[in-house]
Simulated scan of single mutants.
Amino acid sequence: MNIYISNLSHGINDANLHELFNEYGEISSAKVITDRESGRSRGFGFVEMKNDDEGQKAISELNEAEYDGRIISVAVARPRTERSNNGSYNRNSYNSNRRY
């Protein structure tokens, strides 16, 4: 089960996230998402748990719990949706009405 955790303190790292969820069951991975340029936490992460029942228990007990001075949100992660334009604007459509 893939679990999404948001509103994490910027001081939280992968090991902290692993430790937090470890008491609920076996973890495949724990990852805090960081900014590509600065390397600083973006305030959210993902934990992959091997057992769905253990994952549900972790979600139930940790959602809206205080962790490192913040109230975190914990939920089942939704599948990532593909962006149609890879996150960039279409230059041709942006400039289509401009005359040079």
Rank of each mutant, 00 (worst) to 15 (best):
M1G: 13
N2F: 07
Y4Q: 10
I5Y: 11
S6H: 15
L8V: 11
S9D: 10
S9L: 11
I12Y: 15
D14M: 02
N16R: 03
E19N: 15
E19D: 12
L20T: 05
L20S: 09
E23F: 04
Y24M: 13
G25A: 07
G25H: 07
V32L: 11
I33Q: 10
I33G: 01
T34D: 03
R36A: 14
E37C: 05
E37I: 05
G39N: 08
R40E: 00
R42A: 07
G43M: 09
F44A: 07
G45A: 10
F46H: 06
E48C: 07
K50S: 10
D52E: 01
D52H: 04
D52P: 01
D53H: 03
E54C: 14
Q56W: 01
I59V: 01
S60C: 05
E61V: 12
E61L: 15
N63L: 00
E64K: 03
E64Q: 09
A65N: 12
Y67F: 13
Y67R: 06
Y67W: 03
G69V: 06
R70N: 07
I71E: 14
I71H: 01
S73D: 09
S73H: 01
S73R: 14
V74Q: 09
V74R: 09
A75E: 13
V76C: 13
A77F: 10
P79R: 05
P79N: 08
R80M: 09
R80Q: 02
R80F: 11
E82S: 07
R83P: 11
R83A: 07
S84R: 15
S84M: 08
N86K: 13
Y89H: 14
Y89V: 12
N90Y: 12
N90S: 05
S93H: 09
N95I: 13
S96T: 15
